[in-house]
Design a protein around this nucleic acid. Structure first.
Lengths: 213, 213
DNA sequence: AGTAGTATGTGAAAATTATAACATACAGGA
DNA sequence: TCCTGTATGTTATAATTTTCACATACTACT
């Protein structure tokens, strides 16, 4: 609907998945329409922010009525790419790689894990949650011959930069990085760093700073 | 040094763990001093931001010299609470609970997992990474009689609100929530929501929006 | 010891982000 | 069909966050 080329800020984009979750919940509960005010109360944000955020992408609501939940859910989904599938590979079947491989929630959001890669001989050829485990030696060939959008990096710290660089060269479009190392590559690749320890430390800070008050 | 009561914004706090990581790296590499300019180049942020951020907590640097890496590392650590230990319990030994239990990185950051709770009979009494697994029925007694700072919530969606409420009532200080449900409780408890799917969807958005350009 | 160079801490400006305010348009009932 | 009430889209204002700019103070070299 709205095809403006005005830049959309990351602040807004980062809120979209949350809207998507709340809308999904509403749908599940059979709610068919909602106003920005009602939604704002549920989500603990201002109604103004909701309207502003949504309007970056188009006028999905109607004056005097509000938003149709199903429609808005679809629209936000489209913005987030749920109207098509992303193909993922997982690199590194350690703790986190294992957990992510078994996490079925991603599929519901449009993300299919198509293959897992590791180096441990005893894992190669096995299946985790129905997904085949290949050896890292076969990575380049697989990525070259198959459509892969995103690589999930859950390898040890020391190997992260090398493998990340390899994936960048292979032309993978996105990198979901679980190593406690920030990645920035000289390739045309989008990177999303997930630093669990960082989040935990922020929680620790919040607890401490409240005590001091 | 600086004990002002001026409020420190979350924007700043969320950057602290990153500083901490980079300083840790510098230490490891034997770097003893660094200027905000050098650090800014390494981290891909402005030198001004680094100086502003650090100055919220005190003047850790010296004009004409820069910052002593070891000292700054210690100071940022202190701000983040690494000068004392946080006691954690993990609730729910599913995929994520399992991964987190085995993640030894937390210990290095000041967080000790002291007990795991689940309901599956075959798990009770076993040890994961040296940590005992108790039954959920024993949760209340354990938390009442032992020091617990943070509960890590990695239970199924449907059970999240109930268990979260229970933990709130038990007086746990912080909640590290891995359920795709936002938590806000009427207790004096700090909450840090970790929504992996959200992060993945943002990555998906970034990939898509680049294509369209 | 004196001096040139360097880098902090900080106050002010710019940019970004969030909130408020309101004119417009539609819904729904009489 | 008209009219009141409601809720959007959007413009304007406020708040926050980031960047700039520079005076001050320390380093290090002669």
């Amino acid at each position: 609907m709205n095809n403006d080329n005005k830049k959309i800020s990351m602040a807004v984009v980062k809120r979209l998945p949350r809207y998507y979750r709340y809308l999904s919940d509403l749908l599940q509960n059979g709610v068919t329409r909602i106003s920005s005010k009602e939604l704002s109360e549920k989500m603990g944000v201002t109604a103004s922010q909701i309207r502003q955020d949504l309007n970056c992408f188009g006028g999905f609501g109607q004056q005097g009525y509000g938003y149709n939940v199903q429609n808005l859910f679809n629209e936000v989904g489209k913005i987030l790419g749920t109207d098509h599938r992303f193909k993922l590979i997982i690199i590194g079947l350690g703790n986190m790689g294992h957990a992510l491989s078994n996490y079925d929630n991603f599929k519901r959001r449009g993300f299919d894990i198509v293959k897992i890669f590791d180096i441990k001989p005893e894992l190669i050829g096995t299946k985790i949650n129905g997904i085949e485990v290949f050896h890292m030696d076969d990575l380049d060939e697989f990525v070259s011959n198959n459509h892969v959008d995103i690589a999930v990096l859950s390898v040890p710290y020391s190997q992260t930069p090398n493998i990340a660089d390899r994936l960048g060269r292979l032309g993978v479009k996105g990198l979901w990085n679980f190593s406690p190392m920030d990645l920035e590559l000289p390739y045309d690749i989008e990177i999303e760093n997930v630093h669990l320890s960082d989040s935990l430390m922020v929680l620790g800070y919040k607890i401490d700073s409240k005590m001091k008050k």
